[in-house]
Every structure is written in structure tokens, then in C-alpha cells.
Design a protein around this nucleic acid. Structure first.
Length: 273
RNA sequence: GUUCCUUGUGCC
């Protein structure tokens, strides 16, 4: 059984969903008892290859065969439905998750927060977040903060950021990149500077994601000089930081500066495109 | 053995 499952997963992960499905059906016809791992492997295969409807169908089929979908099943399903999806679809999946009482699984809940946020249902995301209550980890906070950022709800994000500090959840590099995007979205330079201080204190200045987010925050909040200053503290090898800087100058109508910056980058000869 | 949850710029 185990080796059959490995085979299904192997096909599925490498884009051979059809082959995986054939194998799966063959096993069914031969009366082999297919366990959750087999089902999950096939569902994951369809999910990974963009066949969200088929993945969902399989989930319903599991239900009708009295199988019990687990957190792995739903993490796959949610992944499939996380791109360009409508809130109603997420709601439907959510209701099934509640039915199976898998909302208590922190990874499932975190994924729900993320997907709700990405499809525009920030209130639903918050409800899931609040339901998690004591069980949420740093990923839950991060998912919620980036959701607010994507909705330009910078103050809500900042309140959460402050709150997590109060109750002793340590921000990580994801938190910093996310909160910086959030404060940029409302042009809150003062908040951004507070976060900057914390980045230094907590030792995340070496992370390119965090540092470029800081630069971008200064650019978006109308302080490209600060962005420039941060940039000079790096080795100048990161394309994203260059882009942030150049667009920042262009944004502030400093086309000469933007051009100079661009030329510097080309002369830098560090293998950039 | 199956899924492994969240983060950066611009262009399109």
C-alpha cells in the first residue's frame, strides 16, 4: 500500500496527474483499500496542476464514500483555490472544514486567513483569526497583517503588530516585510520609522526581504533619501532594491536621479538584468 | 508514505 501511494504521489508531483489518476482507478477496481494518503496524493496532484474543480470533486467523493478528509486534504484544496478565487468558494470550503472540525488545526486556519485575505474577504479572515484565539502562532499574525496590507488597512495592521508585541509573539522576517507593506499603503512614515527601529533592534537588517521592504516603505512614504541611505548600506546586488530606488525617484519626478541611478546599476557590473 | 501555512520592487 505504501509503495502504491508513493507512486501516485510521484506521478502527481511531476505533472503526470493523468497517470496518477489511472493508477488510482486501477487500484480502486482491484478492490484495494485506498486510504487518506492515496486520496490526498491524488488531490494534491490535481491542485498542484491547477485543476481545482477536479480536486474539489474528489473531496466530495471522499465524503460520499464515508472517508474522513483531514488537514492535509484541505491544505491541498485550499492551495488549489487560493488563486483568483471568489469569496463564495472559500466560504464553501470553510463550511466543510467546520463540518470536519478541522478549523482547530492551526495550519488549516492560517491558510484560510491567507486565502480569505487574498480573495478580498478581509472580515472573514479576521473572524478565522479571532476564532483561533489562543492557538494562533506567528504565521497567523503574519497572514492577517499581509491581508490588511493588501486592503490598504495599514492602521489595523499596525494595531495587530503592536498587539503581538504586547502579548509576546516575536515578529519574524515575514512579519516585518508585511507590516512595512501595510504602513506604506497608508503612507504612514512615522509608523514606518518605528518599525525600522525594531528591525534594527531585532537583528533582521541582514534579510533582503526586510531591507527592500524598508526601502520601499521610505520610497512610497515620500522619503527617497532614506531609501537611498539604506541602499548604500548594502552591497548593491539586489535587483529588487534597485527597482525600488529607481521607481522611487521616477515617482518623485526626479528623472535625472532615476537615470543616474540606472546608469550606476549598469556600471555596477554585478550581473543584473 | 500524502500537504506542509505567511513576506519584498518594477514591467506585463
Amino acid at each position: 500500500m505504501v509503495s502504491w501511494n508513493v507512486l501516485i504521489a510521484g506521478y502527481a508531483q511531476n505533472g503526470y496527474v493523468h497517470e496518477a489518476d489511472c493508477l488510482f482507478q486501477q487500484m480502486q477496481q482491484e478492490g484495494i483499500e485506498l486510504d487518506n494518503v492515496a486520496w490526498n496524493a491524488l488531490i494534491a496532484g490535481y491542485s498542484l496542476n491547477g485543476h481545482s474543480h477536479k480536486a474539489f470533486k474528489l473531496l466530495l467523493q471522499m465524503d460520499s464514500l464515508c472517508m474522513k478528509p483531514d488537514s492535509v486534504t484541505f491544505l491541498s484544496i485550499l492551495k488549489a483555490w487560493s488563486v483568483f478565487t471568489r469569496p463564495e468558494n472559500v466560504c464553501l470550503i470553510h463550511s466543510l472544514i467546520l463540518e470536519w472540525e478541522l478549523h482547530v488545526d492551526v495550519m488549516v486556519a492560517n491558510t484560510l486567513i491567507d486565502v480569505y485575505g487574498k480573495c478580498g474577504s478581509i472580515d472573514d479572515a479576521r473572524r478565522v483569526f479571532d476564532m483561533l484565539n489562543i492557538k494562533h502562532n506567528v504565521v497567523s499574525w503574519n497572514a492577517m497583517i499581509i491581508g490588511y496590507a493588501q486592503h490598504s488597512l495599514g492602521q489595523e495592521a499596525f494595531d495587530l503588530f503592536t498587539k503581538m508585541g504586547c502579548i509576546g509573539v516575536e515578529p519574524d522576517k515575514f512579519t516585518y516585510a508585511s507590516i512595512l507593506k501595510a504602513v506604506s499603503s497608508i503612507l504612514a512614515l512615522d509608523h514606518g520609522k518605528l518599525v525600522h527601529d525594531q528591525v534594527i533592534k531585532s537583528g533582521f537588517q541582514g534579510d533582503v526581504f526586510v531591507w527592500s521592504s524598508l526601502m520601499d516603505m521610505y520610497v512610497k512614504c515620500g522619503s527617497p533619501e532614506d531609501a537611498q541611505r539604506l541602499f548604500l548600506q548594502t552591497c548593491g546586488q539586489d535587483t529588487v532594491m534597485w527597482n525600488a530606488l529607481i521607481s522611487g525617484h521616477a515617482y518623485n519626478n526626479d528623472y535625472n536621479l532615476a537615470l543616474h541611478c540606472f546608469q550606476d546599476m549598469q556600471q555596477g557590473d554585478c550581473g543584473l538584468d
